[in-house]
Design a protein around this nucleic acid. Structure first.
Length: 485
RNA sequence: GGCGCCAUCGUCUAAUGGUUAGGACAUCAGGUUUUCAUCCUGGUAAUCGGGGUUCGAUUCCCCGUGGCGCUACCA
């Protein structure tokens, strides 16, 4: 049974790089009819950020990545699902205590009473002498009596793993292949901190084993500490999961994506009006491709086709231009009714009263033009309130003020007497022939009409706008334009 | 400093010893057009450097170079 997990720390928002890692873990599980779990790694009490758990889970809900087991969001409430819980590490402290005893008894771990000051001094010395930094093993061979005495004395301590000093540890990574580390270069990692909480390294091994994780899929930053984890599995006599270390997402400057350079949290992109289907499609393609020229994949299609054999090793630049293109494509493909629904919250955000309008018609004006839902709302605001504009804007580049006025008046007259339904299609067929009959060019009529309806240099076509505004409002705006000129 | 990972157009990538090195985004030029956008046509643009191995290297090996990660009682 394939079981993968995503294990975020509740220290802020869901990072887009984390989303990709989670997405790959999810896709891999789905592809093989496995389970995808979510575990919370909150072993650093000092870094907890209020509300971050909700935020992370809401981001997942937005992408439609579903969590089978662990911490889930149900009707807006955080719940734990599954029989291998709790799935929040701060609720598993007794479990770690139980397992650290096993290691202590096997002499694979030891109490360390070294002070922070001593450790800092040691590191300073090592750096000055250009030596590899790491614990010097000061407490590694304390006798049982010495340890007991110090414990009796209530001295503060941590528990470290007793890393073997010879041999090599080999990782057989699903994306990187065989990677080898010399054991003697690996530090005696702290497993249990002075506050009794486990470190990441200990908790991840115990939990992945207990939760029967078959494939540990995580970011590349963990590659270097993986040998420690493998040694821990061996000490316990547990089977190691398969590992997959994914490359990082970087910015245009080839640096790690960080808050200093642009938006890095999923929620930022939600707010900007990116569609989850476009976002997921784009993110999935940063480091994976189907091996042919296809570019559009739904989540379901990704679940069918995702394969680690096609996952790249190099870091990928998060390129907003391509995201915009994807988003625009998805917006174009969507029905205008659905699009209107997706835009509702953005209209609310702008406190536009849309009650008397057909939103579907309005958002359709921007389909194929706007990159994001936010832009759709921004760019259609002229429908609700005509912006101020200079009368000179009404004059087409190949025309002049006088003829513009005459043409506008003629157009108004024509529109007043138009019969049939006031729709874009009807307007188009009747007006274009009428323009020809008048011996005019399209620009002579359509440019001033468009400006009078939108007040904008750039906008959708005048007949589309007229169709949305209705006959009355269209004529009102055009008469205003005549007065203006 | 030590250890490790990575390296094809500006960007995402395809090509796992034999291709005019392909596609997409971006960009440029032209066309369509009332503006912008869309759409259509075409163009510019890449195998980090040096050694090997081989009849032949983007592809395999070594050495550089560069980027990144780790080197915490953070994850």
């Amino acid at each position: 049974m394939i079981r993968t997990r995503f294990a975020p720390s509740p220290t802020g928002y869901l990072h887009i790089g984390s989303l990709r890692t989670a997405l790959y873990a999810y896709l891999f599980a789905r592809k093989h009819d496995g389970k995808f779990l979510l575990r919370i790694e909150d072993t650093d009490q000092g870094r907890f950020v209020e509300g971050s758990l909700e935020n992370i889970l809401e981001s997942f809900a937005w992408t439609h990545v579903t969590i089978d087991e662990g911490v889930v969001l149900e009707n807006g409430e955080i719940k734990q699902k599954g029989d291998k819980g709790p799935y929040i590490q701060s609720e598993r402290l007794e479990i770690y205590q139980k397992y650290i005893k096993v290691l202590l008894e096997k002499n694979d771990a030891y109490h360390c009473f070294c002070s922070k000051e001593r450790l800092d001094e040691m590191r300073k010395q090592q750096e000055e002498n250009k030596l590899a930094t790491g614990y010097d093993g000061h407490c590694r061979n304390l006798t049982k009596e010495e340890v007991d005495a110090k414990l009796e004395n209530k001295e503060s301590f941590v528990i470290r793993m007793k890393m073997p000093k010879e041999g090599v540890t080999v990782i057989d990574d699903m994306v990187r292949g065989r990677v080898e580390f010399q054991n003697k270069l690996i530090d005696d990692q702290v497993l249990i901190k002075a506050d009794g909480f486990p470190t990441y390294h200990f908790a991840v091994v115990v939990d992945d084993h207990l939760m029967e994780i078959s494939h540990a899929i995580r970011a590349e930053e963990w590659l270097a500490s993986t040998p420690k984890h493998i040694v821990l599995y061996n000490m316990f006599g547990w089977e190691t999961p398969k590992f997959a270390h994914l490359s990082l997402l970087i910015n245009e400057k080839k640096q790690k994506l960080s808050k200093r350079h642009g938006d890095v949290s999923v929620i930022d992109y939600v707010k900007k009006g990116y569609l989850p289907e476009a976002f997921v499609n784009f993110i999935a393609f940063l480091g994976w491709n189907p091996g042919d020229d296809r570019e559009f994949f739904t989540l379901e299609e990704l679940e069918k086709e995702f394969d680690f054999a096609k996952v790249g090793k190099a870091a990928a630049v998060f390129n907003i231009e391509k995201l915009n293109w994807y988003n625009k494509q998805y917006i174009m493909k969507m029905s205008k009714e659905e699009l209107a629904k997706r835009c509702e919250s953005f209209f609310q955000e702008k406190s536009v009263d849309v009650s008397s309008f057909d939103l579907a018609k309005i958002v359709a004006l921007e389909q194929g033009r706007a990159n994001t839902l936010f832009e759709i709302v921004e760019n259609t605001s002229f429908i609700f309130a005509l912006p101020e504009y200079e009368s000179s804007m009404l004059v087409w580049k190949k025309s002049d003020k006088e003829t513009t006025k005459v043409n506008l008046q003629k157009t108004i007259e024509f529109l007043e007497n138009i019969t049939g339904e006031w729709t874009r299609e009807n307007l188009e067929s009747s007006m274009l022939t009428w323009i020809k009959e008048q011996g005019l060019g399209n620009g002579d009529v359509l440019w001033p009409m468009r400006v009078s309806l939108s007040g904008l240099q750039n906008s959708p076509g005048p007949l589309e706008i007229a169709g949305v505004l209705g006959k009355e409002e269209t004529l009102t705006r055009m008469r205003q334009a005549v007065d203006k000129i």
